[in-house]
Design a protein around this nucleic acid. Structure first.
Lengths: 113, 113
DNA sequence: TGCATACTGAACTTTTTGGTTCACTAACAG
DNA sequence: CTGTTAGTGAACCAAAAAGTTCAGTATGCA
């Protein structure tokens, strides 16, 4: 079992990236680690709110934090996104060719229960 | 404007795939189109509940329906997942090499505001 | 020491989500 | 026709999510 990533914390990851604020946080951290306050600054919400978003990202394994004095420095941990990318890419054959419509036509005759 | 998919309905897509039931529905439809009832059958919830999930998937552009008599036949529409895959793949450089930690070390000195 | 800064935690509010039930419409089967 | 099957729509509920405020804890700085 090497690819058990799915359905273990995967659900958390999908839930984590569902929120646009959290996706924006990830984008910001892609530019390099930064302090909680700096991450929070661009958003029109309190620091506490952003702090909660960050905690959700942490639990999803997407962000890690290291304390430097009173500052919390956040950095991106993108591995879980690999699973997401691969999950979506699993549907590749449906968008590559327009074979989804084609195959639909085929299978309809048999598979339709 | 051909690639405006992002941020237009993209948010809906991310929200749509956040729910495990809805991901399961997509998986089922990957095997071919099927009727609402048949899609609903495996789940431990009412048909109405599944119907609502399907509507969310439709609004996200992930599922389309065609009526055949009184039956609603659902089929997968995977295009939006391409955007998801590409979005996640945008973070590829962070998981490919362990260069995220490396670069973190670099940028920390300058970027830390 | 003593005040400002950088956060967290707890309590609370509002909105959204995921589910239910029940009544309804439409289509098919005898 | 009549009854059964396939599905929606509306009203409702409980729990979760997203945000707030306020109080508290460390750390840094003068």
């Amino acid at each position: 079992m090497q690819s058990t990533q799915s359905t273990l914390a995967s659900n958390d990851v999908f839930a984590a990236i569902a929120d646009p604020t959290r996706r924006a946080i990830l984008e910001r951290l892609a530019a390099g680690p930064s302090r909680m306050s700096d991450v929070a600054a661009p958003f029109d919400m309190t620091l506490t709110a952003v702090s909660k978003h960050v905690r959700i990202l942490e639990r999803a394994g997407l962000v890690s934090r290291t304390r430097r004095g009173r500052e919390h420095v956040l950095s991106l941990d993108a591995q879980p996104l690999r699973a997401v990318s691969q999950w979506a890419a699993g549907y590749e054959r449906f968008w590559n060719e327009r074979l989804d419509r084609l195959e639909a036509h085929f299978t309809r005759k048999r598979t339709l229960t």
